[in-house]
Design a protein around this nucleic acid. Structure first.
Lengths: 200, 200
DNA sequence: CAGCGGCCATGACAACTGTCATCCCGGAGT
DNA sequence: ACTCCGGGATGACAGTTGTCATGGCCGCTG
């Protein structure tokens, strides 16, 4: 029996997957969580074989949860299941030592299959990503990422500089180098590129 | 028996909901669709009582599908189920004459409940939205929306003017008035506001 | 018919953004 | 010791963006 904790922020989707997994007779959903904090708590309380988690959730993302569990050397295998085929997400997931990465676009059989294979010690990665990710690493520095995130909120350089306690010129420099690295034409495009690759 | 066509672009989520609905003994999923075009085709072929559809899908959005069905006076009640609590989405849904609007954040019982009530002639709208939407209508003109969409892709004014066959000054004017109407500080923030309200 | 609002355009100006050269500091490698 | 890289900063300059005033053309509505 594979004991699973399921984390997903949309209530309907969460319960839909939960009942679906319960239909498999070698899988048991021992707890569900609606955000990252709850996921961590559930894992610590129930000690499941596998944590099956979405990425984009409130409070703590699925990637953050995976990282924390790795840091704490918690004995649980993590499977990420997400909408986003972003190479940066996969890279961070691998860095956090996750055992599986499945796309919500794939048929559910892939999900159940991944759970079984992960449980038996294998690592499973969505094929369309396995290739893509083996190209580019995130070229951005921490500060460049900080600036880009605020750019995405529509803040002008003056306010970005205040929030990060930097001079306005420095903000311009970071942004300029991020734009260069991403081959973007301006701040907005740079943000869009970084977001779509999962760098933020 | 309520005959339902289900449209949702993420394969896993689609089949999860499909099997969940099949568990109800007064609901029958007669067809599923992975995008707007398929949804229209499925409705025309199967003539279901209800079309249950996501909004953000490839080819044709759920709102577009609802609008088309209304234009063609097709005899089917539409229920939107989406992640996004955006007032603009709800407004467009109401304009397209949909019978229900449910959030994926709500418990699944709400979904099944909505299907039953819609089938019996009622209209159902997620309570958190019913209130919010009764405030602001979309203040933007068509051209302002056109410009904002391209701004979101990170294009500079020069290129936006080419794409829309306008002079660059005109683009600046539209953008300036959109920024004013949305009380934004710059193009990026204006885009973010418009997107978050569902105006685009 | 006058008035309003949307659409399109110009020109001028100010403000913001992006690039570049150049500098200082500190830590990690060789 | 020397070099490379990241963080942080300045100043100068060009280019882009945002605002405003103003004008014209259309179609709708009171």
């Amino acid at each position: 029996m594979i004991r699973v904790v399921l984390a997903e922020d949309q209530a309907m989707v969460l319960s839909a997957f939960a009942s679906l997994l319960e239909l498999e007779d070698d899988i048991e959903v021992v707890a569900t969580a609606a955000n990252g904090e709850e996921a961590l708590a559930a894992v610590n309380e129930h000690r499941p074989d596998v944590l099956l988690t979405d990425i984009e959730m409130p409070l703590l993302s699925g990637l953050d949860v995976a990282q924390r569990l790795a840091d704490e050397r918690t004995e649980v295998r993590v499977v990420i299941f997400t909408t986003f085929a972003r190479s940066g997400y996969l890279r961070r997931a691998m860095d956090a030592g996750v055992a599986g990465y499945v796309l919500k676009d794939a048929p559910i059989t892939d999900l159940v299959d991944a759970l079984r294979r992960v449980h038996s010690g294998e690592r499973v990665v969505a094929p369309e990503l396995a290739v893509a990710a083996w190209g580019e690493a995130d070229p951005l520095t921490d500060r460049e990422r900080d600036v880009l995130r605020l750019v995405g909120e529509g803040l002008p350089n003056s306010e970005i500089s205040e929030r990060l306690h930097l001079s306005e010129g420095t903000v311009r420099n970071y942004l300029s180098s991020a734009i260069l690295k991403l081959s973007a034409r301006n701040r907005t495009e740079a943000f869009a590129f970084a977001r779509d690759k999962g760098y933020l």
